[in-house]
């Protein structure tokens, strides 16, 4: 019960912050929550199940294009586009996972990386239809949900918050369910899990599809909330970012993703306001942070303060 209370309190605090802070921070928070949703999906695969993927940009971008292309070419409204995006991410995860999960560990990392690179190149190759690297602006008619324009600060934030809240509560329920224990068992010792009658391949594929759906929903939401879809979101840096958020916040903690995403955003913001060599400062802080908390910030909390942290 305590875990649910903490999560609801965090959601309430985020909601209050988004509604009370000035518009600039409302928009930033909306962006952070969308990326945190992506990272939360990544965390299910990596943090809980131990699937070290370097190809999640492919799921994010699949969701983004599955939502944005129908909106651009055929004028789909936001609600079906969002569902298409979620399905797009899940289907991409199903197709690539069925092959990539034949491998494990670093081989899995490299196979997902290469699939994602091929996908990013395919977006460029079919530029006549996808807009290539330049991308395209989402028509404003498609950016309406329940009659409200997602281009305005408050509705945009509320949409992002709802998506994040849904993701967070579902992932909390998931990791506390029986299947959640299966996930952790696969991470800790796959052989033992197999002896307990678990089919590792099927279970991991299921996790990857859930993770892909999450990432796809986030990609679709990014396009619809911020009005743009482009090839850069399929690049390797969008595979590294969710990993960085999760490791920074704490892998295998439900709240680590949002903490990491927020921290990286405001760290960049702060560093670029004090020096033009902001990249150096960001790098330095990352090194110092990881020396202080090798298991991420919430990993440190879990080790020192609250062992039951989900």
């Amino acid at each position: 019960m305590r875990a649910w209370a903490v999560h609801l309190a965090v959601l309430a605090a985020l909601l209050a912050a988004g509604l009370l802070l000035p518009g600039y921070h409302t928009t930033n928070l909306a962006r952070i929550l969308v990326l945190a949703t992506f990272a939360a999906g990544y965390n299910l695969a990596f943090g809980y199940t131990g699937l070290l993927s370097l190809g999640h940009a492919m799921f994010f971008a699949a969701g983004m294009y599955a939502a944005a292309l129908p909106a651009w070419h055929w004028g789909w409204p936001a609600a079906p586009a969002l569902l298409a995006g979620t399905a797009g991410g899940a289907l991409m995860a199903l197709a690539t996972g069925a092959l990539a999960l034949r491998t494990a560990g670093v081989s899995f990392m490299i196979v997902t990386l290469m699939f994602a690179q091929a996908f990013a190149l395919a977006i460029l190759y079919f530029n006549g239809w996808t807009g290539g690297d330049e991308g395209f602006v989402i028509p404003s008619a498609s950016r309406h949900l329940f009659g409200t324009s997602l281009a305005a600060d408050t509705p945009r934030f509320l949409a992002a918050w709802s998506l994040f809240a849904l993701g967070l509560l579902l992932s909390l329920a998931l990791v506390r369910s029986r299947f959640g224990r299966v996930m952790v068992a696969l991470r800790e010792n796959e052989e033992r899990a197999r002896m307990l009658g678990i089919n590792p391949f099927a279970a991991k594929l299921k996790v990857l599809v859930i993770s892909g759906a999450w990432s796809g929903a986030a990609g679709a939401a990014y396009a619809l909330l911020f009005g743009y879809a482009g090839g850069s979101f399929a690049g390797i840096q969008y595979s590294i970012l969710p990993m960085l958020y999760v490791l920074l916040g704490g892998a295998g903690t439900t709240l680590g993703a949002v903490l990491g995403a927020g921290l990286m955003f405001y760290l960049t913001e702060f560093a670029s306001s004090v020096t033009s060599a902001w990249l150096f400062l960001v790098g330095l802080v990352l090194v110092v942070l990881v020396l202080f908390a090798p298991k991420g910030i919430l990993g440190w909390v879990r080790a020192r303060l609250w062992r039951e942290l989900p």
Binding site: L247, L279, F280, G283, L286, K295
Partner: peptide
Amino acid sequence: VLKRLNYDPEATIVATIGVMYMVQQAALS
């Protein structure tokens, strides 16, 4: 850095991403 992290695989990823940013910025500057 790495020794102090005891070569923990996950922490090393974050640390070397940090080193990557620092080296890149130094080269740019």
